[in-house]
Structures are given as C-alpha cells and as structure tokens.
C-alpha cells in the first residue's frame, strides 16, 4: 500500500491504495463518486473519462497512484458552484443528448476538454473528438447537437443524419 494525495473536484484527498488500484476504483469505491462509469474497463468506451490536470483521461486505464499530486475533476465537479447545471450539462438536457445516461458523464467530460481547446468546433470536429466515447442509445446526433449548442453556435440547421 502507498499513500496518495491529490485534489479531487477542488478538495484535497489522501488515502492508502494498492499498486493495482485503478482510478475508477479509487473514485467509485473509496471516494464514493459513482458518477464516473465503467463500461468496458479496457480503454475503449469512454464512460470513465475524467480530467487529470485538465486533460481528458480514461480513469479505467490509469492507476490511482499515478495521479499523485494531480488535480482531478470528475462529473461531480462539473456543475456550477451553486449546484445548477453547467452550460454543457444544461445543453445535454435541452437537446436531449442522453437517453439511459450511462455514457453521459464521459461525454460531458470529453466535451469540456474539446471546448476548452477548440471553443467553436465544427460538427465534424465534434464527431472526431468523440471517437473514444461510445453511446448505445442516442445515435450520437443529439449529443453532437448539444455540444455545438453549448459552444454557442446555432444548431437549428443541423439535420438528423
């Protein structure tokens, strides 16, 4: 066991972990932050995307001890300080960007780093960026629409594919 210390959603946390404790296990089982979902557990589906020092990372494929000293954000840290939904989250609701909701935490986390790096992406750029986020319900269309809307772009002209 080793002790890890990191900041999660703005709060300092310090815990003993084993070498093979995954970030998903650390967040879900130790910190009870169950918003980070585990879909494939093999770095394929993106349900577990979190931010480590501001970058999107698949939490199922990084050990907790590797995040020593890092600043981590999960879906639980995405709402505004007053508890209201962030722009991206609100857009997912407004544009029906989710159905079962399983992929949604990862989608929102990926969308956030996309818009940080590329504030006005094209539809194609959004689809490319979401290659590692799999959704079994929506057909992606409304997810893409929600992200474009969250970027402040007009989405009325976007036809269903």
């Amino acid at each position: 066991m080793t002790k890890v210390t990191m900041t999660v959603n703005g709060k300092a946390v310090s815990k003993e972990v084993s070498g093979n404790t995954l970030m998903t296990e650390f967040l879900r089982d130790e910190l009870h932050l169950t918003g980070t979902h585990v879909g494939c557990d093999t770095s394929q589906c993106g349900a577990c995307v979190i931010h480590v020092d501001g970058e999107s990372v698949k939490a199922c494929s990084i050990f907790a001890a590797e995040a020593e000293g890092a600043s981590v954000t999960t879906i639980e840290g995405m709402a505004n300080a007053d508890g209201s939904l962030s722009v991206i989250q609100q857009a997912f609701q407004d544009y029906h960007g989710l159905q079962c909701g399983f992929c949604t935490p990862g989608m929102v986390m990926s969308a956030a780093t996309l818009l940080k790096d590329n504030p006005k992406p094209t539809e194609h750029e959004v689809r490319e960026y979401l290659k590692g986020n799999i959704c079994r319900c929506t057909g992606y269309h409304n997810i893409v629409k929600a992200i474009l809307a969250a970027s402040g772009q007009d989405v009325t002209g976007i036809a269903a594919e």
């Binding site: 770095s43 993106g46 970058e55 999107s56 990926s110 960026y129 290659k131 590692g132």
Partner: peptide, 9 residues
C-alpha cells in the same frame, strides 16, 4: 491514433 484520451496517455 485512437481518441483524445488515449493520445493523452
């Protein structure tokens, strides 16, 4: 290669 999260690691 892969997707953004894979490329970050």
């Amino acid at each position: 290669i892969g997707d953004p999260a894979v490329r970050n690691r």
